[in-house]
Amino acid sequence: MVDQMKGLKPELRKAMKAKRDALSAAERDQRSVAACGRLAQLLESTGVSAVFVYIQLRSELDTSPLIEWCWSNGVATAVPCCESDGRTMALYWIRSWDGLMPGAYGIREPNPAAATPCGNTFVPGAVIVPGLAFDRTGGRLGYGAGYYDRYYDALQAAVAAEGGAMPPWIGLGYEAQLVEQVPTDGHDAYMDAIVTEQAIYRSGRRSGTTWSL
Rank of each mutant, 00 (worst) to 15 (best):
I107M: 12
Q56M: 09
I200L: 08
G86M: 13
K14M: 12
G37K: 06
E162C: 09
A189V: 14
C82P: 03
P168Y: 02
H187K: 07
F122Y: 11
G7C: 10
Y148K: 01
Q30I: 02
K9P: 10
I170D: 00
Y174M: 09
P124Q: 07
W97Q: 14
Q41G: 15
A161E: 13
K6S: 13
A90M: 06
S203L: 06
Q177H: 08
S207P: 01
V123R: 00
L23W: 11
V53I: 14
S24L: 11
E180L: 07
A115E: 01
A35G: 12
I200P: 00
E11M: 12
E180H: 10
V48R: 00
L172K: 06
A176I: 07
F122W: 15
Y92L: 07
V195Y: 02
T46D: 04
A18M: 12
G186Q: 10
R140A: 03
L178E: 05
D62K: 09
R150P: 06
A199D: 15
R31A: 08
W97K: 15
G171P: 06
E175P: 00
P102L: 08
G74F: 09
C81T: 07
D149F: 03
L91K: 02
A157F: 04
Q41N: 10
A189H: 08
A34S: 11
Y147I: 07
L178Y: 06
E197H: 04
P130W: 00
A199M: 06
